[in-house]
């Protein structure tokens, strides 16, 4: 007979208590807020160093503002194209022209814990795009480049339709990105 796993059972009984439910939601929000800020920092670091990003961004209009986040009540981050790179303006929705948001915390968790790739999440209708679809495609392409640099190979192979591979010079860029990520992270978190 089919059964729920022990973990699933424990979670079901823990959720009996309203306090737990609120805590669980809160914990997910905190995790996602951190993940989003890290991502914001990564946007800054990768777009500053990667050639591919520069190519992509050259097609963007100056000052394009977009947000990533979760419905209905956050967290969100808002980013903006400035010159040849992307800058994080801050947390929350700051009048973006385009936003890519998950419909609920659980769907966002699956993606931001790398359990599921962005492509699959979109295919499963877990996110909504508010704004121009073409621009969203451009943002998602940059997002994919960022993940290529940020995430280890086995996750990329699991989450991408065609797993990207890095060349030797790209590994150098990756190293530079990791180094420059530190000050970006410091800036976003403090």
């Amino acid at each position: 007979m089919l059964e729920l796993t022990r973990f699933e059972k424990t979670m079901i009984s823990a959720r009996k208590f309203p306090v737990w439910r609120r805590m669980e939601t809160k914990a997910k929000r905190v995790y996602l807020a951190m993940a989003l800020r890290t991502f914001g920092a990564a946007f800054e670091a990768v777009t500053a160093s990667s050639k591919e990003c520069e190519n992509e961004l050259s097609q963007w209009e100056e000052g394009r503002r977009f947000a990533l986040g979760v419905e209905p009540s956050g967290p969100y981050i808002t980013l903006e194209k400035k010159g040849r790179k992307i800058r994080m303006i801050g947390t929350g929705l700051k009048e973006p022209v385009l936003s890519i948001v998950f419909k609920n915390l659980d769907s966002a968790m699956m993606v931001y814990t790398t359990y599921m790739g962005v492509v699959q999440a979109t295919a499963e209708n877990r996110a909504v795009i508010r704004g121009d679809n073409g621009k969203a495609m451009e943002v998602i392409r940059v997002l994919e480049i960022i993940m290529t640099y940020l995430l280890p190979g086995f996750i990329l192979r699991k989450n991408f339709r065609t797993a990207p591979t890095l060349s030797a010079p790209q590994y150098l860029v990756m190293l530079r990105i990791y180094v420059s990520l530190v000050p970006s992270l410091v800036k976003t978190f403090f």
Binding site: I12, S13, A14, R15, K16, P18, R21, R22, E24, T25, K28, R29, P72, S73, N104, L105, D106
Partner: peptide, 15 residues
Amino acid sequence: TGFINLLEQAFTDSE
């Protein structure tokens, strides 16, 4: 079975 808890959890982060 406690499935109601799952439903209530889903409504925790909602208007």
